[in-house]
Simulated scan of single mutants.
Amino acid sequence: MLTQQTIHAAVAAALAEDAPYGDVTCETTIPADETGEARLVAREKGVMSGIDVFAAAFATLDPSVTVEPAIRDGERFEAGQTLATVRGRVRVLLTAERVALNFTQRMSGIATMTAAFVAAVDAIYEDGYDGSAGPAFGVVGPRRYTRTRIVDTRKTTPGLRPFEKYAVVCGGGHNHRYSLSDAVMMKDNHLAALAARGIDLAGAIRHVRDQVGHTTHIEVEVDRLDQIPAVLDGGADTIMLDNFTLDDTRRGVETIDGRAIVEASGNMTLERVAAVAATGVDVISVGALTHSVRSIDLGLDWA
């Protein structure tokens, strides 16, 4: 997903945006041949994502710049920890600094938030769990996976989707469909359009199945329990329970009974996600991972 070609194209565009006619400050204050060294330092703890993107920001301006990572994507870091060392011409280091940090800070923020959601869900399967996900329910395991998966959505920053979805994986999450081309996802408006043509819910799913290849996955969103039998009858591969209460989510899981992947979605928060996972859903999609994330505070300090 996050190829070197994708990284180069995005970084080059960001550098062109930030210094379209050069860096006037560096060009008037720093000798062209002056070299130096700087360290990427964490100002707070988090999970790393984007170390190759960080390096690419400097290499795009000058391939002779060297970046020595002290951490790999997906690894945790503490405040004050050195994450990479950069050596090269000072003009290049200063010109690329903000672009390098912008990418890495945001990606690490996404990875860090994802890791927090994953940890909240994983806790319910550990020995000695205190029952805070909802003692009235207990914990029901998902049917399709060992543990409920945290996944992203398409609520990403335009032009940065590959970076943001990669960061989710660095945080221990999984990706939902990458684009509209990847799978069928029938939501309320799609179903309403088909219903206006006299096609019922089960018939709508069969209508789609007749037109797509056998490898195409079909997901259907429902917002009421009474829609589930028709969706099962139509043969959906995944059923999304949208904005269900915990009681209704558990009933939905019981009704579906492993006949489709069960996804929970809708205003998912860190405080609520463990309780939703405890109902036995296979997947929880969290738009906040990319649309409401806070960048991690990283800095470039001169050695």
Rank of each mutant, 00 (worst) to 15 (best):
N102H: 03
M1D: 05
L15V: 00
D122F: 12
I71P: 00
T290V: 15
A42T: 10
A57P: 04
A202Y: 04
V169A: 15
R294G: 07
D127N: 06
R161W: 07
S179V: 09
T85P: 00
T28G: 12
D23G: 13
E75G: 05
T29R: 14
V24P: 03
A115M: 14
A57N: 13
V90D: 04
G198M: 05
P158G: 08
E27N: 09
T112F: 03
H291C: 14
D23F: 07
T216G: 14
T215C: 04
D301I: 01
V41G: 11
I261L: 06
G258M: 01
G280M: 02
M1W: 04
A59C: 11
T216S: 13
H217W: 13
R294I: 07
P158R: 08
A16C: 08
G266L: 12
L191T: 02
M186L: 15
V253E: 10
A278I: 02
D188N: 01
D247W: 00
Y145R: 10
T25S: 15
G134I: 01
G198W: 02
G88I: 09
A183F: 05
I218S: 05
A42E: 11
T25A: 15
R272D: 13
W302A: 10
R197A: 03
G46F: 01
A79F: 08
S295M: 01
L300G: 09
V90W: 11
M113K: 09
E126A: 09
D18M: 08
D152R: 10
E34P: 07
L225R: 04
T6S: 13
V90P: 02
G287V: 00
D152A: 04
D52C: 05
S295I: 01
I199W: 00
P162D: 14
P63G: 02
G299C: 15
G141W: 15
I239K: 05
E37S: 12
R76E: 15
A120I: 09
T3Q: 11
V281C: 10
S49K: 09
A16M: 10
V262K: 01
A288Q: 12
H190P: 00
R259S: 03
I51T: 13
L289F: 06
V212R: 10
E126K: 10
K45T: 15
T216W: 08
A70K: 14
A13F: 02
V212F: 05
I51F: 11
T148M: 03
I296H: 08
A303I: 12
D52G: 10
T290W: 12
G173Y: 03
G131L: 05
D257A: 15
E126Q: 14
Y178S: 11
T66F: 05
H174I: 02
T66H: 13
V262L: 04
L289V: 01
A288V: 03
